[in-house]
């Protein structure tokens, strides 16, 4: 690195005589190349370990067993059990994201207007911690609480309440929605809190001053300001539920078809021979779905933060 620096200084030190313009261009070009040279390790790593795998998924998704181009894998991903798993994954993500948005927003709003800095600090720290609580341990926590022999289940049975008497089961769709809330609500609080905090008291006062009732203030100012942030958060929650694997794997053991679990099954190799590449096609579908959701999130988040700037 040091040598490069020195050679650059030499170039810069050449007096600007004669054909100075082209010389300056050369030195600019060299400077630019030098400026990016420090990023080479990163780009090499990213190409090998992000680019390569992504390319492999896309490439194989359109490759038949015989090695020719085909759309059959993608078509197959939209039939039978594969299609069902896409549908139930979308349904799960939708249910989990919308309940997460509602409860997370309610808590975040309550905390934001409470005017208690201590409570705000606790909730913010706890949200950061719980939002990262997922995976296998989370599944076992809920098994211990409301599994068939869970403490809450057994405790409630003693007082005559059977949470399994209805259609609820921890090991199915309703259980997953409930368990996912454990990280979805905190995630919602983290992403929506800045928007709530960004609401200036001047806006409410100005609206009231201009003759608006509380309801009209919310209708014309409060809700429109919060909407991009809330919808944006919804997409983030949607993506996070759609892609989640570990908790679902432990809880459902494959009893309900979910796209990530299907892909997983195909990865581990229990697969009908002529459908080897359908896993890649489903992987591609997942990238597209999550990609769309994250694009919406990024766009809406940027919109929402534009209003927060001043």
């Amino acid at each position: 690195m040091t040598e490069q620096i020195q050679s650059r200084n030499v170039v810069a030190a050449i007096p600007n005589g004669g054909d100075s313009r082209s010389r300056r261009q050369t030195s600019n070009l060299r400077k630019n190349l030098f400026d990016y040279s420090g990023l080479i390790p990163f780009f090499v790593f990213a190409t090998l370990f992000i680019g390569g795998p992504t390319f492999a998924v896309i490439f194989n998704a359109f490759l038949s067993n015989e090695g020719s181009w085909t759309l059959a894998n993608v078509q197959l991903a939209f039939t039978d059990v594969y299609y069902l798993s896409l549908l139930s994954s979308l349904k799960l993500a939708l249910a989990s994201a919308s309940t997460g948005v509602i409860f997370g927003l309610a808590i975040a709003y309550g905390v934001a207007i409470s005017g208690k800095p201590k409570l705000q600090k606790i909730v913010s720290t706890a949200s950061g911690v719980f939002a990262n609580t997922g995976g296998v341990p989370l599944a076992f926590f809920f098994i211990a609480a409301i599994g068939n022999y869970g403490l809450v289940t057994v405790g409630l049975q003693k007082v005559g309440i059977d949470i399994y008497s209805g259609s609820f089961t921890l090991f199915g769709f309703s259980g997953l929605v409930l368990v996912y809330l454990y990280f979805q609500i905190p995630l919602m609080i983290i992403v929506v809190y800045p928007a709530l905090e960004g609401i200036k008291s001047e806006w409410r006062e100005a609206a009231v001053n201009l003759g608006a009732s509380k309801a009209l203030y919310w209708r014309y100012v409060g809700i429109p300001i919060l909407t991009p942030a809330v919808i944006g958060s919804f997409f983030l929650l949607f993506a996070s539920a759609f892609a989640a694997y570990a908790t679902a794997n432990v809880l459902t053991q494959g009893t309900i078809p979910l796209l990530p679990l299907q892909v997983g099954t195909l990865v581990s190799g229990d697969v009908v021979a002529d459908q080897a590449n359908v896993g890649f096609a489903m992987g591609l579908v997942m990238i597209v779905v999550v990609g769309i959701a994250m694009t919406f999130y990024t766009y809406l988040d940027r919109r929402a933060s534009r209003w927060r700037k001043r």
């Binding site: 006062e205 001053n209 100012v221």
Partner: peptide, 20 residues
């Protein structure tokens, strides 16, 4: 109540509704 007083107020700053 404030919203029935017909007083026009100009605040220190940042009082414009950002969505309008």
């Amino acid at each position: 109540p404030a919203n029935k007083r017909d007083m026009g107020m100009v605040f220190q700053a940042y009082s414009l509704f950002p969505n309008l």
